[in-house]
Design a protein around this nucleic acid. Sequence first.
DNA 1: TCATGTGAACAGATTCACAGCG
DNA 2: CGCTGTGAATCTGTTCACATGA
Lengths: 230, 230
Amino acid sequence: MPTVSSEELAAAAGVNSAKLRKDFSYLGSYGTRGVGYDVEYLVYQISRELGLTQDWPVVIVGIGNLGAALANYGGFASRGFRVAALIDADPAMAGKPVAGMAVRHTDELEKIIDDNGVSIGVIATPAGAAQQVCDRLVAAGVTSILNFAPTVLSVPDGVDVRKVDLSIELQILAFHEQRKAGEGAIDGESPAEGAVGVEGPAAKVTKPTAATAQKNRKGPDGDVPAVMPA
Amino acid sequence: MPTVSSEELAAAAGVNSAKLRKDFSYLGSYGTRGVGYDVEYLVYQISRELGLTQDWPVVIVGIGNLGAALANYGGFASRGFRVAALIDADPAMAGKPVAGMAVRHTDELEKIIDDNGVSIGVIATPAGAAQQVCDRLVAAGVTSILNFAPTVLSVPDGVDVRKVDLSIELQILAFHEQRKAGEGAIDGESPAEGAVGVEGPAAKVTKPTAATAQKNRKGPDGDVPAVMPA
DNA sequence: TCATGTGAACAGATTCACAGCG
DNA sequence: CGCTGTGAATCTGTTCACATGA
């Protein structure tokens, strides 16, 4: 398939074809009127714009289960990321092979970053160590940090941090699940044919005192969640 | 701090206070004019709306590094999630303790889901096994799936799937990193005081043939990425 | 008096619809 | 002719500003 039309791409992506064309137009005029977009050329242009054509050395700090999982994750290489080093504070880990690579000790952190020109660091340490590791990464020249530790990191201006909270995705699912279970489909939500009854929802969070609860209760009555828009 | 104003919350969250008030108003009228919002009551209402006051049993299928990391992740319990079981296809894993819990074999999957009223499943298997596991989960009554495997899962209507791609976050960082490096700050982007020069960006993706490239090149000249809005 | 809650004004994003070009 | 690229129309989401009520 040498060329593709905005209509086809839009259908595949589930969006409006005009939006797709307008978005592409921000990158330049890469299509051919009456024909469509040259697939190979389009892929190259988008890849370049996204930074996929560059080689990004990254370090992963904290080689526990999560760090090891990241080190073994195949998706990195194909997107331009190269794991320059795996770093752990535990001396017993040093030298051990993980994902075909010897783990280095934290003492070498600065040297590794400098030697490899690393500008992106991944933190997969326990929460307690994260800020300290972050500070060292930043001091050594790292300007982008991906944080898996359950802490908010503080960094100087000019440094980007993205926090990945593995439970947030679950929370989003639970939110929709709750709405599926709530007295039949509320919106145009499909009736969830295979839906199994959700088992007894035990109250968990400390409920507010009766006084407070009654005094302020002005929302929808009962314990039924209000219908939120969209 | 028994009460809080929309102004204070907005400042803390970095958003406009009117937006915050309007958003809250969709949940009901939980504030007090001239005073603000009762913190305890507000937390409870938001928690309930998000489904955090319910107990959500989940199963994790595929107990490799990632599955083990998820099993050990502390954030789940505090958000209402209870790991009902860890499931793996490897008979050698069965019975082994991970995160203080014996791993169960895939054979038991249907029974576990039924016994625990599980409606949310987490897939942390290799890509090859994911669809098959997904099908079994759905057949057994699971209606929400969190997929860490690098595959697109197909599910019947009424089942929600969320895919977590660990490399996408890195890609977003790399995108910003690329823009930091690009000839000085482009937008109002801070000048990245600590920015270290990014090392020689080696071309990686197969470049399009010269013919194609020249024929269609209509975008911004040179190899400088176009400036995208916002 | 002070901060909420909300119509009205505004801004930004999406979609329409068609001129223009290969 | 067919599909891109894009002004204009429309829709959605945000912010303003103030009436309202504790």
